[in-house]
Write a protein that binds this DNA or RNA. Structure first.
Length: 594
RNA sequence: GGUCUGGUAGCUCAGCUGGAUAGAGCAACAGAUUUCUAAUCUGUAGGUCAUGGGUUCGAAUCCCAUCCGGAUCACCA
């Protein structure tokens, strides 16, 4: 529609003033709520051409547009703004489209759709998931749904960092202090158990460092020479050399961790189509790097370490293989990328990884490009901001980490309390109630995180952050539940809701609700283009706020006019559907009652 | 120090491809329920859009400088 208006304005300028203009000189925008109209043409930029006053130009333009565009009923002018008012039937047509399409706003995925692979989550197997991972998982899942809704084939993938010195630290501490403790014997969740030993390692390590410093060593040397860190390094060497005992311990502890992760993923409602493990990909990366050396892309030093020189690209030198021949993070990502492109016909690759890795992905992109992968330079790093606590960053060493599982449990508890106070679910079974508490708690958490622009650092205050009133997930879920309640009442009364808008007078409130509704497809598209679930969240919030006003001001079931009543039911039903679809893009479920 | 990134109400955030009087929620205060779920709705109050300059008919938005914060620049991942 905007395009049509823009083209007509260009035509009008030509006809009226005999001058051609560039299309980006014509500004068409949605009319602000406080003014009367649907679309607005900004006439200021055109004054130079018309050589007339703003009012006069707008008037001439307005007349032209009313005559040439059928759906425009009238216009009004405020200062230099030409507000165009559409016929109601324009909105009714759009609403009918929204009604008839169960996947309104979503583009279909066909066999010709592009394949988008999205990597997210990517945990280390030495400690449990925390709040930062939650943001990653929620963003990753949501952007996957959004890409799907924009007509892409999506492959969700997870690369598990299951090898490296950090894993050896947990293993070593467990070996020294564990006394054979297992998740079964202790009743602890596997990832938490392993995480505890990671912390224990760090405590031992610190003690040794302190002791060494007391003997006169510098801190740097002490860190280097502490016996326990050397033991861990030795363990890594044994691991890479396929030492059976080390491998067995490693795979046992990893199994514990995976069981724990799976539980957390299930709670969060995220999943993956394909999981990669770095223990399987890092050797491929090493081979690629060595190929690079052979082809003169990288340089090998006298101590056999391999480096990429990126000074020509404005970056630094980057190590790719250590002098002992082992891989670094970058090497692994090269290997993983190669395997993935062999496994899937990927058109676009999206990495959901925190913004602390911006440099890493800049380098990765360049390296892949240098190695001859044509997709290297257009990989997309979905870079999101950190989650901070009121005290600042989360630090596991200082115990300020917010554990993912604990957080969810706490929120379900709050949801239960709120719900019990309200007492609306009193005659439901415990199982049904629990189901709703979990839905609401997760709705609150997910919405809280996803409504913020992903690029921005966000603040999370465990005491105050998660609310159930106002601009929150539960607020939106509540509205959905309310709509369903009305629809149930209608069904009980034997009313059949029509499948097309009946011929009724549409009030202003209803019209603005319809307008809000019809912006959904645009919101979905923009969220895809800008990689931002926040745009969906904010859209749904606006829609719901609009509906709640309508709901408050206008009666649905008690409306005397049968056709109007049916129209409102139909409208409410369609809003409900859109809330549900919109929230599905955020991975948030909506309850039938709450 | 180099590079990247941010600074909008007491707090958490929208708005940023330049447009009309800078918006929400929370917190504060005042109201609304004989009527479809009050986890709702209405209102009051709260702003030097970090600061200074520039471009423009018009700047929170674009450009430059300064101040303040964060990330990153590892033979950690």
């Amino acid at each position: 529609m905007e395009i049509l208006i823009r083209n007509k304005v260009i035509q009008a300028i030509e006809t009226l003033y005999g001058q051609g203009i560039d299309e980006n000189q014509v500004q068409v925008q949605t009319t602000r709520k406080e003014f009367n109209g649907d679309k607005t043409v900004v006439v200021f930029p055109l004054l130079r051409i018309s050589k007339k006053s703003a009012e006069q130009t707008a008037e001439e333009l307005g007349n032209y547009l009313v005559e040439t565009i059928e759906v425009i009923a009238s216009y009004n002018i405020v200062k230099g703004f030409l507000n165009l008012v559409f016929h109601n039937r324009y909105w009714v047509n759009l609403l009918n489209k929204a009604i008839s399409d169960p996947n309104y706003g979503f583009k279909p995925v066909t066999k010709d759709s592009e394949v988008v692979m999205i990597e997210y989550s990517s945990p280390n197997t030495n400690k449990p998931l925390h709040l930062g991972h939650i943001r990653n998982n929620l963003l990753g899942f949501s952007i996957s749904e959004i890409m799907k809704a924009n007509g892409n084939k999506v492959v969700k993938t997870n690369i598990v960092n299951d090898r490296g010195i950090h894993i050896c630290k947990s293993m070593l501490a467990w070996k020294k202090l564990g006394n054979g403790e297992t998740p079964q014997s202790s009743g602890k969740k596997g990832d938490h158990l392993v995480g505890e030993y990671y912390v224990k390692f760090d405590q031992l390590y610190k003690k040794e460092i302190t002791a060494l410093i007391a003997t006169g060593l510098t801190e740097e040397l002490a860190k280097e020479q502490a016996p326990i860190i050397n033991e861990a390094r030795e363990m890594l060497r044994l691991w890479e050399a396929n030492d059976p005992a080390t491998r067995e311990l490693w795979s046992m502890m990893n199994t514990w961790v995976y069981a724990g992760f799976d539980e957390t993923y299930k709670t969060l409602g995220v999943d993956f189509d394909k999981i990669y493990y770095e223990s399987n990909t890092y050797t491929v990366g090493r081979d690629e790097v060595l190929r690079g050396v052979k082809e003169g892309i990288f340089e090998q030093m006298d101590d056999t370490s391999v480096w990429a020189n990126l000074e020509g690209d404005g970056l630094d030198r980057k190590i790719l293989l250590r002098s002992d021949g082992t891989s670094v993070y970058m090497t692994q990502d090269i290997g993983t990328a190669k395997i993935r492109y062999a496994d899937f016909p990927i058109d676009h690759m999206i990495y959901v990884v925190g913004n602390e890795q911006n440099y890493h992905f800049q380098v990765l992109s360049l390296l892949l490009d240098k190695l001859g992968y044509k997709w290297g330079k257009d990989l997309y790093h979905f870079s999101y901001g950190m989650v901070e606590l009121p005290q600042g960053r989360m630090k596991s060493r200082e115990g300020t980490v917010v554990d993912a599982d604990d957080l969810v449990v706490g929120m379900v508890e709050v949801a239960r309390k709120v719900s019990e106070e309200l007492g609306k679910l009193d005659n439901y079974s415990d199982q049904e109630k629990q189901h709703i508490y979990e839905m609401v708690a997760l709705g609150a958490l997910k919405y809280f995180i996803l409504k913020v622009d992903p690029k921005k650092t966000m603040l999370f205050n465990p005491e105050e952050s998660i609310d159930f009133n106002g601009n929150t997930g539960p607020f939106i879920q509540y509205t959905y539940a309310r709509i369903q309640s009305v629809l149930r009442k209608a069904a009980d009364a034997g009313i059949t809701i029509p499948t097309e808008v009946p011929a009724v007078e549409i009030s202003e409130k209803e019209a603005s609700l319809i307008k809000a509704l019809t912006e959904f497809p645009e919101a979905v598209q923009e969220a895809g283009e800008k990689h931002s679930p926040a745009l969906v969240a904010n859209y749904v919030y606006e829609l719901v706020k609009e509906f709640n006003q309508f709901y408050h001001d206008v009666t649905i079931m008690n409306e005397p006019d049968e056709e109007v009543r049916k129209f409102r039911l139909l409208l409410a039903q369609t809003i409900g559907k859109t809330i549900k679809n919109g929230f599905s893009l955020l991975g948030i479920n909506v309850p039938e009652r709450m």
